[in-house]
Design a protein around this nucleic acid. Structure first.
Lengths: 211, 211
DNA sequence: GTCTATAATGGGATAGAC
DNA sequence: GTCTATCCCATTATAGAC
């Protein structure tokens, strides 16, 4: 990968995470990356392709590790929610080795992929990395066999929602937390707050059937 | 309010919820509302003001009720998380009386306000309806006095995040749920899944101090 | 591979007739 | 209050020189 191509990716990663896809113009990306405007189209083809490349780089970095950890857990006789979350989050946190805040950027981008109407991106991710979601689902069921398929389905998505949403608003919340509570919370600190919150919500008894 | 002014609001509400603020053009809004393009600027001044008006209408409809219910709960000797959530969600659900899916649209718009970089909107909401968040915070503390201020702060935001995120992705999840589980879930059904998830996560023991 | 210049499109906003 | 026509701006994308 040429230096230019990588500079674009690095700048786009931060800007997309901070401002969203459609709010971030190629002009801004290229000016932050200090490359020529035409370079994005030359190296990536289009803005859509750049968006996919930014998110794909993250998945490529964690895919094999997460997949392998999930497979290991599936062979255990007892699996806890905490183990599943850690199998996912530890590789994500290790992204910070490349760039500070990479882990947070990744989660925020996932949130944006989920809520912004980037149809091409959802298809791309479902196609390429849907297998991770399938394994995640199976593990949660294994960890809590009392839950119905429906309960597992909904809670899993609530859980992912909580995760990515927490990261999406993390900067704003961090500022408020520092002002109101005199507390500085980095990505790992945030996860320390999240894990008990999420494990509790997954382990509770099944939803009452009200229909 | 003139018929035109209201038609714009109704169209904008749905489109903003579905596609986001910046992805929804005034041209699309006015064509769906079947009014002239210039009418938005005539009646609302600008697109920003229209965005605020759309969200403000929801808050005006629920503000007094929620505020009153919160005050009533604050006077009880014992408060549960479930009661707090219901004090918030019942008025929200009653929005469906005006238009079907209003409640879901409202929550999705809140999510977009939270994640899209609409600085003006966050200021507007914090200014006008911040008091609701303050009361919510006090109630959660009252319901679970064992939690530190920090725990309450973070869990409250996780909880709100889960709520709005669940609604943001609701349409997509609904489709998957129908295909995979043969289950149709409306807004009230979604809330039935959400409440045990959230109450459990709020009631669990405090986060371990790892610092 | 990099750059300048420009095409092509779509956006928000507004002036002025009715 | 409503409409048409238009202005002005920002965007993505590309053609063509270097």
């Amino acid at each position: 990968m040429t230096a230019t191509k990588e500079k674009i990716l690095n700048a786009a990663e931060v800007l997309f995470a901070e401002q969203g896809f459609s709010e971030t113009s190629m002009r801004l990306i290229t000016s932050v990356a200090k490359v020529n405007l035409a370079a994005v189209n030359y190296h990536y083809g289009s803005k859509k392709d750049l968006i996919q490349a930014v998110i794909d780089r993250f998945f490529i970095e964690i895919n094999d590790t997460v997949d392998h950890r999930f497979d290991q857990l599936a062979q255990q006789s007892e699996v806890t929610i905490q183990e599943i979350l850690e199998a996912l989050l530890k590789p994500v946190l290790s992204l910070d080795k490349r760039n500070p805040d990479s882990a947070a950027n990744f989660m925020r981008l996932l949130g944006r992929a989920y809520t912004e109407s980037q149809g091409h991106l959802k298809l791309f991710l479902a196609d390429k990395y849907g297998h991770l979601l399938t394994k995640f689902n199976a593990l949660v069921h294994q960890a809590n066999p009392d839950l119905s398929k429906n309960d597992v389905f909904w809670r899993l998505h609530f859980m992912l929602g909580t995760l990515v949403f927490a990261f999406s608003g993390h900067q704003a919340l961090r500022d408020i937390a520092e002002a109101d509570l005199n507390e500085t919370v980095d990505t790992e600190g945030l996860i320390n707050y999240l894990i008990p919150f999420l494990t509790a919500s997954m382990q509770t008894e099944p939803t009452l059937e009200t229909c």
